[in-house]
Nucleic acid binder design. Structure first.
Length: 319
RNA sequence: CCCGCCUUAGCUCAAUUCGGCAGAGCAUCGGACUGUAGAUCCGAGGGUUGCUGGUUCAAGUCCGGCAGGCGGGACCA
């Protein structure tokens, strides 16, 4: 694969890359490393899936993929007992594999290295040059609790920065909520004599309730191993205002989970409402904004595609 | 370590001076209305009142102990 098509594969569907020229340099390396960290979570949902699919593309573009199962981070974020979190991490690993990451993907449990002396020393070094305000600000979209702040909250981003050093990362990936921590890494790693990774951010998927972010704690998600019946039920309840494209979760689902695999979306619609249609993405957005496509027809169609898209995942999980 | 205040539904808070069946708003769920959802209207579920011991016919309410939160004080060679 040449550089240009690699860049195309990586750029598609990402909101920002910091920076593209640095990324091109990294692509010259033999086997550059891309990493993403996930706090183990009771359910892996479509929001996670967007980033996993991006990782698969990076894999195709020649990156070695490291997935951090960030058990200590989840622990520091008040998600429960460490032992329980580790169990969830095992389940999550299977979910990520089910989404299609190749067998070369490396899964690393945070606690397997995050208590080493060299690690801790680096966390302390960063602690010395990071202000409280900056550390807290970087956690604004990540922390579980908006009040009742614990010291854990400011340790979290520092550890994440040191993770990049220990995992020898060339590229750090995440949703846009990771941006501030990533910028902290880019600013501070050079100050302790380490090189900072390229940062790549994907858009956040809105929740089924229309809120800013799909997240397991808010119950506004569709899990990758939900049954077809559950998917239908959840899609029925999903926020979907007519004519509104911006922040519309159903449109976003089509964008991220249908169009990357299908040139055209086939809308099945009763004759009395105008009959079937074939649309590409720009056409869909256009026609929906003009209210020439009813939300229910869109929903029904996207639901069917989604069930189909998640079928292999479901089957893998049942094994 | 000491002192004071606080802890009631998932969340924010009520609960007559002085003990008498624990309520509301938001959220959730369900119906109505829309060819979806939302909004709106109607309805429902939801509680070991932080834990524990006591006083009393009767304790969210009074007394003791413990835990957690908040604020202050003290310590600072």
């Amino acid at each position: 694969m040449d550089l240009k098509s690699k860049m195309g594969l990586i750029t598609k569907g990402t909101l920002e890359i910091i920076s593209e020229t640095e990324l091109e340099e990294k692509l010259q390396k033999e086997k550059p490393v891309a990493y993403i960290g996930y706090e183990p979570s009771g359910k892996i949902h479509l929001g996670h899936a967007i980033t996993v699919m991006k990782m698969i593309n990076l894999q195709k573009a020649g990156f070695k993929i490291k997935i951090l199962l960030a058990d200590y981070h989840a622990f520091l974020n008040g998600k429960g007992k460490l032992e329980e979190i580790k169990n969830v991490a095992e389940y999550n690993k299977k979910c990520f594999q089910a989404l299609g990451l190749s067998s070369e993907t490396e899964f690393i449990l945070g606690s397997s290295f995050q208590t080493k002396e060299e690690y801790t020393t680096q966390v302390y070094q960063l602690a010395l040059l990071t202000t409280l305000v900056r550390a807290k600000r970087s956690m604004a979209q990540i922390t579980r609790d908006a009040e009742d702040h614990k010291v854990a909250e400011v340790i979290y981003p520092l550890m994440q920065v040191v993770d990049m050093v220990f995992l020898e990362v060339d590229l750090a990936m995440g949703g846009m909520e990771q941006r501030k921590i990533h910028m902290l890494a880019r600013e501070n790693l050079p100050r302790v004599g380490k090189s900072a990774p390229v940062c790549l951010h994907t858009p956040l998927l809105h929740g089924t309730d229309g809120s800013e972010k799909m997240s397991s704690s808010k119950g506004n998600f569709i899990a990758i191993d939900d049954s077809p019946a559950d998917i239908k039920k959840k899609m029925k309840k999903t926020y979907c205002p007519a004519g509104e494209v911006e922040g519309n979760p159903v449109i976003e689902m089509a964008e991220h989970f249908i169009f990357p695999f299908n040139k055209k979306l086939i809308i099945k619609r009763p004759e009395k409402f105008g009959g079937n249609m074939e649309l590409d993405y720009t056409k869909l957005v256009d026609i929906y904004a003009q209210e020439k496509l009813h939300p229910l027809d869109l929903k029904n169609t996207v639901t069917d595609y989604l069930i189909d898209f998640l079928k292999p995942v479901r089957e893998y999980m049942e094994k």
